[in-house]
Design a protein around this nucleic acid. Structure first.
Lengths: 134, 134
DNA sequence: AAGTATAACTTGCATTATGCAAGTTATACA
DNA sequence: TGTATAACTTGCATAATGCAAGTTATACTT
């Protein structure tokens, strides 16, 4: 169940850490969609199954990319959140978005987001990041 | 053997296209390491197996990310090359490199590359791209 | 206090993908 | 004509994923 590090090539390292079909989608939900709960991740369009979700959440936590804690208000819920290490993947994800906008003629990316991305990549990255400050 | 598109979320689209453990490594070899032949890909540190390599090459070709043609000089060899669509993944890969440099204490990224990346990301991207012009 | 609901997982099992070794086909060079 | 090499393909064991059902720990309701 554990992926071995194949080499210390930086691209390989990144892929070994989060380069599967689901990890970045969970992170997308956390960072771009403001989700933070198990049930919210489950409800995403791509239909992740419960065992895979649980597995990816624990891997991402072990990798230091997200944190897990009890909701202080609703004590039976768990809250997940991205760490700095996770938030540092915002530029990676925005580049993925930029590429997909260009090559997926049916992209579901909102017009406004596309405009912001094209006009000021770094500004958009900062703006998204700033939602997690404090 | 085919991954279904799960949604038209741009991140999901990108992952469905090249988001497995090997596709980007092949593209890395093509773009960053100047490789273009089957045997060269096979020789990489990560030890891809022959069936997976053949599968990924044909998927990447089907996706329009690489091309395949006979070597006009050595007629028994095949030459693979990135298309514009493939070269447009340079920024994605450079962001992966940037992240891995930051979080992999044992990264194998050359010092010079790190310096260039930190000093002028877009310039480095252009420089790599320009090697494929003409 | 007992019963019901809900959130966050686990478990079991079928299906699919991957890894490894060996085999095949088509040049090309000796 | 024979041998080497490049680019695959095939068969099979192992590992990862998908799906449905089950479990555990709160919390809310009566």
């Amino acid at each position: 169940m554990k992926r071995r590090a194949r080499s210390h090539c930086p691209i390989s390292f990144a892929l070994d850490t989060f380069g599967d079909h689901w990890s970045l989608l969970v992170l997308r939900d956390l960072i771009f969609k403001g989700k933070s709960r198990y049930q919210e991740f489950l409800a995403s369009d791509e239909r992740i199954s419960t065992n895979i979700l649980a597995d990816r959440l624990s891997r991402l936590e072990n990798a230091g990319i997200i944190t897990r804690k009890n909701d202080p208000i609703n004590k039976k819920q768990i809250l997940y959140a991205p760490t700095k290490k996770g938030l540092d993947l915002i530029p990676v994800m925005l580049e993925l978005v930029r590429w997909s906008i260009k090559y997926d003629s049916e992209t579901a990316t909102p017009k406004k987001f596309i405009r912001e991305l094209e006009k000021d990549f770094d500004g958009l990255a900062d703006k998204i990041l700033s939602q997690f400050k404090r």
